[in-house]
Design a protein around this nucleic acid. Structure first.
Lengths: 210, 210
DNA sequence: TCCAGAGACGTACACCGTACGTACACAACG
DNA sequence: CGTTGTGTACGTACGGTGTACGTCTCTGGA
């Protein structure tokens, strides 16, 4: 009956699917096993423990970043592309993103984007230490942005927040928040991300000229 | 015997203490109750559930940000001060930081820093929407940076990583990572944070002039 | 033919969050 | 004084979790 004989890859794929469908909290070894129509402990023949499984989830998601790197393009364009590629997979696996960023990875899958970014930056003229520093700034911004984008969606529909907040907030204690409530609630994630990214790239370019 | 009669504040304080001592994973209602020398279910007289308790933890940590805002100072200095104040409490409660950023807050405690920042930015001349956008960029960078700083320390001592990685990484596949390994492993968190922050502030100032 | 190894599985344990019922201490009121 | 809430502490119990361990079955080589 089991045409597909159960493997680490199938388990990880099922875990990712489950996370995206039901959220990271709903992931349990039992749920994954049930999804696969398999005994719970059978999973442990392919995965040492749940922690390692989540590491594998993060690694798998990360490895799906699609770089379309043009070596002839301006370095600013290449950096932008890499950042957007990162954001794109986060958008493709929104619930998994939390898992990815909550977990520092020591796999080669996480290293490949780093390698690409460092190569781009050094090719642009940054020194070794400068490139590392610049990369850290970019990663911090990207991770922080993605956390906001996906953290806003723990389950669904934050639309009521607008009404709730506006009515709750005391305009005397929080005049700015009160006045800017509309701007605070609505958020074009893509535009916001691009804005900050452009800001950083410009600042980096300026840093490079000096 | 119970001179102190158990209260929401005592429970939250104990939870924070426990998180800092044993890590966020070690926090359970049973552990907190044991720490307080109290039955598990007694906690539920003061806290509706664990989720709410963690929200309270985040709120409490956040409310301890110390703003020493000088209204006469340059706006760049004020923004810098606010960002550093944020980072400082994260440094003071490193294990709790993960709890704080993993949880979007709808309390007034989380709103106060927002109010301050918006007021500073608008005082500097930013329009409403611009101030909101700028704030989002700053928060993204700060949160991302803090995640890296504290995420690197899930338990202790990442010093062995250096040796492990350098030897593991294939220099042919990852020439940049291999060459820059020393720079990648050692990280003066404070200096790195300040570098990116300065970059952002400069970029914002430039944006303002236009 | 036999045997060793691998993989699937069931059982069991310790721990988790928390719903529910109970016991007691104290204030308000007759 | 007695009675009667009312709020808090507590114990028990249930369903869920990760996983250690022992067992069964199947398969491939000697």
């Amino acid at each position: 009956m089991p045409a597909e004989p159960l493997s680490r890859a199938r388990i990880v794929a099922t875990a990712i699917d489950l996370i995206e469908r039901e959220g990271a909290d709903a992931v349990s070894m039992r749920a994954i096993a049930a999804e696969l129509g398999v005994g719970v402990m059978s999973l442990y023949n392919h995965v040492p423990n749940k922690e390692a499984l989540l590491d594998a989830v993060a690694e798998t998601v990360l490895s799906q970043i699609e770089f379309t790197d043009d070596p002839d393009a301006e370095w600013t364009d290449r950096v932008r592309m890499q950042a957007l590629a990162f954001r794109q997979i986060a958008h493709h696996y929104p619930r998994c993103t939390m898992v990815v960023v909550s977990r520092q990875l020591r796999s080669t899958a996480g290293l490949l984007p780093v390698e690409r970014a460092l190569a781009t930056l050094r090719g642009a003229g940054f020194g070794g230490d400068e490139a590392v520093r610049a990369l850290r700034v970019f990663i911090a911004y990207i991770v922080g942005s993605l956390l906001r984008e996906v953290g806003v969606t723990p389950t669904f529909a934050p639309m009521h927040r607008s009404d709730v907040r506006v009515s709750e907030v005391d305009p005397l204690l929080f005049p700015q928040v009160g006045e800017l409530a509309p701007a605070l609630h609505e958020c074009d994630h893509e535009a916001e991300f691009a804005f900050g990214l452009e800001l950083l790239i410009q600042a980096m370019a300026l840093q490079l000229k000096r």
